[in-house]
Design a protein around this nucleic acid. Structure first.
Lengths: 267, 267
DNA sequence: CCGTTTGTTCCATAAAATGGAACTGAAGTT
DNA sequence: AACTTCAGTTCCATTTTATGGAACAAACGG
């Protein structure tokens, strides 16, 4: 494994709940030896990935990463269009909307718009959720082949809530439902009292999959509201798909491209 | 040099103007051998730092980085307060305002608010500017010791505009002015027609320096407007400084902390 | 002042990065 | 089709860097 993997592992240790971490924290979270971790963190700081606080030697992500997040936004025209579509849906329904992308087994919100109802779901661009346990995550996963899903979760799957899928088999069952219906849904999975509906669109040229998601208070929504949201979401998503010539191809595996794969069988 | 330095060098190649890069682009920009760069880019993709487009093999920053940018925002309470202060100034003056931090020889905008005048400076959170050639950059640099400035620019200084400092000596001269007056200014340096005023505040605990900046169309501003903005900026900055117990200490060098330095002389 | 906690450095070993050259594959060109 | 270019990858011997256990150093808390 290259040191880059370790670095990315370290970066993934940070979250809203743990925005600052000490050497000891990271050792505990990753289980790697203290000496190696110490050197790694210092190297990451020297390279501009982390900043360190003076007292307590607490590490946090450096501004460089804000810069790169910005580039990501500037670049991707699918994101711009998906964002516009979500904004439209938010204005129409009053519920909060997101655009998200996959990062390994997680989804990360890239853009969001807050609804206007008094009781509404907050936006949190940059937030990370378990892909298997969210509407938006399952929408994205539904565009991967089953064997890719299997290899993604071969080291186990976290089950953050009662209603989340408990096993890969259960996940794939639910992904099949998503594939069939064209949208995905989740209630009370990652967030208590929150319901969500999500669709997915792929830019085959950039090899980028994005999910559109509308989130609402699960208790106050009627079946009629839901049906309306679903119809509109499927509509705008189909429009995006046409524009980017998304014809339902599965997302290409993120791992090595050319290297002859171990046990792959392609006609 | 560790591979992390190379990785961070690669990430710094991306900009608003070049949001996607191919292997060849990066080879041209960095001058490193093609074979090494090829392996490096693939490793960075495998680690989740980069995504690759299917056609043209173009690399772009991955969503992981959006996540980290978000953490950075959640965490830092100085940022939250500085952002609130800038918002106040923006509302009062109608001009665009930023909060920025240093990343090596660049400044990166971490938060921004757009003004309400018809002719106004656009916000661009995540944007990267040359520190030496911007008001906000020089405000931040003014809190470093001169020898740190020298070592920062020992490999040369880019001069993006006529009005920007041409040498380290000239830069330090202007930093002395900033230190004396308590604010920094720039006209027509990085952006044509744009003037900017900036102050700086340091959280000594987190070892974080942030700059507050107000940017305006240089042609339409009066001396009176400017004086008013400066007075208000210095006011809110002083308030922040008191809150964080910033007593004008120089920013600690970003490089190794404990390792006995080569030629350092401290009484 | 001494135990405790937290982070760094040492060092021999193991692993990974390097860069020149050869190779592959995909476009163009004649 | 054969030829040329160009972009990207892989090979391989060499150099460089990472690793982890243990010793060391510094800060903390009585």
């Amino acid at each position: 494994m290259t040191i880059l993997h370790s670095a990315s592992e370290v970066l993934r240790c940070f979250s809203d709940e743990r925005p600052e971490l000490t050497l000891t924290d990271i050792v505990a979270l990753r289980g790697a030896p203290k000496s190696s971790t110490s050197r790694l963190l210092n190297a990451m700081r020297d390279a501009g990935f982390l900043d360190v606080s003076k007292v307590g030697r607490k590490y946090r992500p450096a501004p460089l990463l804000t810069h790169l997040a910005h580039i990501n936004k500037v670049d991707v025209s699918l994101l711009a269009r998906a964002d516009a579509a979500v904004r439209e849906l938010v204005e129409e329904t009053g519920h909060t909307g997101y655009v998200s992308a996959l990062d390994h087994k997680d989804v990360i919100a890239l853009a969001g718009h807050e609804g206007r109802h008094i009781l509404r779901v907050a936006t949190a661009v940059g937030r990370r959720l378990h892909a298997s346990a969210s509407a938006t995550g399952r929408a994205l996963l539904s565009r991967m082949e089953d064997r890719t899903i299997h290899s993604l979760y071969e080291k186990g799957m976290e089950v953050p809530s009662d209603k989340a899928p408990r096993s890969v088999a259960e996940l794939i069952e639910r992904l099949n439902l998503v594939r069939q219906k064209g949208y995905s849904e989740a209630y009370d999975e990652t967030n208590h009292g929150v319901g969500a509906l999500a669709t997915v669109v792929v830019d085959p040229v950039k090899n980028l999959a994005l999910s559109l998601c509308i989130a609402f208070p699960a208790a106050t929504i009627t079946q009629q509201d839901k049906d309306h949201i679903i119809a509109r979401m499927i509509g705008v998503t189909a429009k995006l798909a046409r524009h980017f010539n998304d014809q339902g191809q599965p997302i290409t595996d993120t791992t090595r491209t050319r290297k002859s794969p171990t046990g792959e069988q392609q006609p």
